[in-house]
Amino acid sequence: MTDQTSDASIPSPPLADRLKAQAPYWTVPGLAVLGLVLIADASTWGTLTLAGLAMGMLIFIMASGLTLVFGLMDVLNFGHGAFISIGAFVGATVLLALTGWTGADSLALNLGAVLLAIVAAMLATGGLGWFFERVIIKPVYGAHLKQILVTMGGLIVAEELIHLFWGPNQIPLPRPEMLKGSWVAGGVIVEKYRVLAVVLGAAIFIGLRWSLVHTRLGLLIRAGVENGEMVEALGYRVRRLFVLVFVAGSALAGLGGVMWGLYDEIITAQMGLNILVLVFIVVIIGGLGSVEGCFIGALLVGLMANYTGFLAPKVALGSNILLMVVILMWRPRGLLPAGKG
């Protein structure tokens, strides 16, 4: 056939448009430069930037599942906070049982203990996520109001169950021996644990992105976020895909919980709800359903929290609200909203 439209090639968008499309990616370096100007001290800035990146990576780990769950099935899960807390408590139980490993002067043993704790936490929260999806969320598909109420109820019950099993008090969670302390390089304090957090977060981001782009499952997830009904019409069961993503997202929340617990060196049943606030800010900033947007949002929130924590400690959390407001004024649907046009 003679296709009239094929001759008219797609015009390359003007430079201004291309810059505009890339603008979300420049927000992180932009914020870092702004931080450098305001802090005006390179080594302090370096310390804070590393801390901000570490915090951002951890938030990203916890937020990525939530944003995909929303993108895929339009489900907003407040119970995600519960997975964070439970992951932290399960991980802490493992770590506190392995004091022989965590106390040893061996990086391998230390990391082994952390790894075991992470695996245990992910298994626990992944399994719990599966249960949660079946019992709590499945009956309320498509009903936002009930979803919010029911998952919030689930969060309350989960918090109480933590109290039931682990007692009412917060539990101190010391870092393993070799992950304590820091190196100092050119005045910049490089906390060892933060390096681990950055490495782990970056690895998860790269892995997640790679599987989304290069695997068939990832292809299905991306398509499902954009138009789940059409994916079904092509013969795929989106519901099953969703359960899988939900379980994976819950497991990542558990992982994030362990890492955050070691970051703060203390865990409480309420930590999940507190982190959930940050996770929501990140997901909104990034654009619901977008993993890349979520990553950018998480780094922005992490950097912002650390810079303002230094510049004006009393308004640190308020600064993230401000960040959210500014970004929503600029892009009402977040930095890189996915699908559901």
Binding site: F78, V277, F280, I281, V283, I284, N320
Partner: peptide
Amino acid sequence: AMVTLAVASA
């Protein structure tokens, strides 16, 4: 729901 939760905690 998300925004109000964030603002209220702040």
